[in-house]
Structures are given as structure tokens and as C-alpha cells.
Simulated assay, not measured.
Amino acid sequence: MPPSLQHPLVGAASPRFNEVTIDDREVNVPGYLSTHVTVIDFWASWCGTCQDTMPALDALYRDHRAEGLVVVGVSVDEDASLAARGAEQLGASFPIVFDEGQRLQATFRVSQVPTTFVLDRSGTVRWVGRDPASIRSAVTALLDER
């Protein structure tokens, strides 16, 4: 597992949320079944670093979704249309939630974007960071755990 950012949620159970995505899919985090490694990425369409992170997360999702990887993007944009347009421009095929009023951002104690959380199969936050290569390493390590 790569080094994680110092974050109060590392080692704790992830906050639960049930949201509807920008394309009307229901998302439950952590999922009802404790069989998935989950990535939660807080991002915004105006975020320069997110321009690199989002495509890397999409590639990770496409590479490992058959193994039980779940990726959820949480947009902290001011408007849902900006989130939808940004997700489309960045080619995100995973679910995107618009965080109206930044409720989830506050719950997860996110102070800057991008910030990515990697949860193990039991819903425990095992890693927090921003670097796409480290995100991939954290996910691979958790997928290898049985």
C-alpha cells in the first residue's frame, strides 16, 4: 500500500451515503454487499489537476470493474450541469454524483480537490491521496487482499 495522506478517516469506517447520479443511477457507498473495493473521488470541472486524475480513474475503473472495483466521482461544482459537462469532457464512464451544497465534501472533510478515498471490502477507508499512480497501487493492493 502506498503512503496515504494524513486524514482523520484513514482506518475508520467510510461515511455512508445514498445518492442519485447525474444520469439518474442510484449509488450506495459503501455498497450493501461487502464485496467491492471502492474509490470515491472528489473533483470539480474547474480543477486543473482533476484533468489528469479523472481519465486515470476511468482507466482504472475499466481495468478492474470486473474484479469488483467501484468508482464514484463526487463533483463539488456549483451546478449539476457543470458536473455533467466536465464528466463528459473527461470521459468518465463511472457514476458521478453532484454534491449539492457540498454536504458530502463536509462529511468526508475534503478541503481541496482532487481528493480520493480508497475503501476496502469492509468499507474501511484505507488510503487517501491525489496521485493517480498511488491510487492505482492502493486499489491493486486491496484487490489482491482476500
Score class of each variant (00 low, 15 high):
residue 102 Q to E: 15
residue 14 S to N: 01
residue 39 V to S: 01
residue 16 R to V: 08
residue 112 Q to D: 07
residue 8 P to K: 13
residue 143 L to K: 02
residue 138 A to R: 00
residue 102 Q to W: 08
residue 99 D to L: 05
residue 138 A to F: 01
residue 83 A to W: 01
residue 124 T to D: 02
residue 27 V to P: 01
residue 24 D to Q: 12
residue 76 V to T: 14
residue 143 L to Y: 00
residue 59 A to D: 15
residue 4 S to K: 04
residue 26 E to N: 10
residue 22 I to Y: 01
residue 14 S to V: 00
residue 77 D to F: 09
residue 20 V to W: 09
residue 65 R to P: 03
residue 36 H to C: 10
residue 25 R to E: 15
residue 57 L to W: 07
residue 73 G to F: 01
residue 44 A to S: 08
residue 37 V to M: 04
residue 12 A to M: 10
residue 72 V to E: 01
residue 51 Q to T: 13
residue 39 V to M: 07
residue 86 G to N: 05
residue 15 P to G: 07
residue 103 R to W: 10
residue 78 E to G: 12
residue 7 H to W: 04
residue 26 E to S: 14
residue 26 E to Y: 12
residue 27 V to I: 12
residue 36 H to G: 02
residue 21 T to Y: 02
residue 17 F to D: 04
residue 83 A to R: 00
residue 109 R to V: 03
residue 14 S to G: 01
residue 71 V to T: 07
residue 62 R to W: 12
residue 140 T to M: 04
residue 61 Y to R: 05
residue 142 L to V: 01
residue 20 V to E: 11
residue 54 M to D: 07
residue 125 V to K: 00
residue 112 Q to W: 09
residue 89 Q to C: 07
residue 67 E to I: 03
residue 55 P to A: 06
residue 8 P to I: 08
residue 114 P to T: 03
residue 107 T to C: 06
residue 98 F to Y: 08
residue 6 Q to Y: 09
residue 131 D to R: 07
residue 80 A to Q: 08
residue 114 P to R: 03
residue 113 V to F: 06
residue 20 V to Q: 13
residue 135 I to Q: 08
residue 47 C to L: 01
residue 70 V to I: 15
residue 115 T to E: 12
residue 42 F to I: 06
residue 79 D to L: 12
residue 13 A to K: 11
residue 122 S to A: 11
residue 5 L to E: 10
residue 72 V to F: 06
residue 34 S to C: 09
residue 145 E to R: 12
residue 62 R to T: 15
residue 13 A to V: 10
residue 8 P to G: 04
residue 109 R to Q: 10
residue 12 A to L: 14
residue 136 R to A: 15
residue 70 V to A: 13
residue 49 T to P: 13
residue 34 S to D: 13
residue 94 F to Y: 14
residue 54 M to Q: 10
residue 88 E to P: 06
residue 81 S to K: 12
residue 67 E to K: 14
residue 8 P to Q: 05
residue 114 P to M: 05
residue 27 V to K: 01
residue 64 H to Y: 11
residue 42 F to K: 02
residue 102 Q to N: 11
residue 117 F to R: 04
residue 142 L to W: 00
residue 122 S to F: 05
residue 23 D to N: 15
residue 105 Q to L: 13
residue 82 L to Q: 15
residue 115 T to G: 06
residue 71 V to E: 07
residue 84 A to N: 08
residue 33 L to R: 14
residue 79 D to W: 07
residue 98 F to C: 06
residue 77 D to Y: 03
residue 6 Q to H: 15
residue 21 T to F: 06
residue 108 F to H: 05
residue 68 G to L: 05
residue 127 W to T: 03
residue 24 D to E: 15
residue 38 T to P: 02
residue 4 S to N: 09
residue 120 D to K: 08
residue 117 F to S: 00
residue 111 S to W: 05
residue 114 P to F: 04
residue 97 V to H: 09
residue 119 L to N: 00
residue 1 M to Y: 15
residue 75 S to M: 04
residue 45 S to T: 08
residue 137 S to Y: 01
residue 18 N to G: 14
residue 135 I to H: 02
residue 24 D to M: 05
residue 105 Q to E: 11
residue 44 A to G: 12
residue 134 S to D: 15
residue 82 L to E: 14
residue 29 V to A: 03
residue 53 T to D: 13
residue 87 A to C: 01
residue 135 I to F: 04
residue 25 R to G: 05
residue 94 F to N: 05
residue 9 L to W: 01
